[in-house]
Design a protein around this nucleic acid. Structure first.
Length: 208
DNA sequence: CGTTTGATGCTCT
DNA sequence: GAGCATCAAACGG
């Protein structure tokens, strides 16, 4: 593990991810996603509960696209949408069970200059990573990273904990951009963060 | 501020 | 063929 990565934290334990995404996702707030020389603190996540979730890509069973999501935890499920955007999930749950946490927003920590170059449309730094496709663009994540192991850090992509101490309560609300499963309260974000995609969905409630 | 609209191509029916 | 876990620009107030 490179020293500049170790400085930001230690890898999350895979066993911690081998649980349903609704349990894991809120715990990911405050962890650090690293991609090469760029890194950001996760401030917004959503849970997708696979075959039990009408909002999940895995709702109708495994397909070629969702193969990673059905695989072991600790890998990245990266998908392409709207003909132009990539979005990244941390795969949760046991091998064979589809469950994943969509990373929706980061607070930039390292490599901000590289992020600015990767996202010329961002007028302010708070616009670099405040959306699931924006953060993938900022970090240079795309289809090549589907299946990459964020516990072992293959492809220099890591998910770290202990790199940051949370001092803000998580807020729970409904997920963004869905038509199916839109009422399920499976979005969490750091209360008061200037780096989330939206301050609150419907019925935002402070949990912690 | 807010809302609306066009871009653009893969995935599954 | 329909829909999409989105974004940015272009509006109107």
């Amino acid at each position: 593990m490179p020293a500049h990565v170790a400085r930001l934290g230690r890898p999350v334990e895979r066993s911690r991810l081998a649980r349903p995404a609704v349990e894991v996702a809120p715990e990911l707030l405050g962890t650090v996603l690293v991609a090469g020389d760029r890194a950001g603190r996760i401030v917004e996540v959503e849970a997708y509960m696979g075959e039990a979730d009408p909002g999940s890509h895995a709702f109708r069973g495994p397909t070629a696209r969702t193969a990673t999501m059905f695989g072991p935890p600790g890998h990245l499920y990266v998908y392409f949408t709207y003909g132009m955007h990539w979005c990244a999930n941390v795969v949760c749950g046991d091998d064979g069970v589809a469950s994943a946490a969509l990373i929706r927003a980061l607070e930039p920590l390292r490599g901000v200059e590289a992020m600015r170059e990767a996202r010329p449309a961002a007028r302010r730094d708070r616009d670099l990573c405040n959306g699931p496709a924006k953060l993938c663009q900022a970090l240079g994540l795309d289809g090549r990273h589907d299946g990459t192991d964020v516990v072992r850090g293959t492809d220099d992509v890591w998910l770290l904990e202990d790199g940051w101490t949370s001092d803000a309560a998580p807020v729970v609300s409904t997920r963004i951009g869905l038509t199916n499963g839109a009422d399920l309260p499976w979005r969490w974000h750091v209360d008061g963060s200037a780096h989330v995609s939206r301050p609150s969905g419907r019925g935002g409630i402070v949990v912690g």
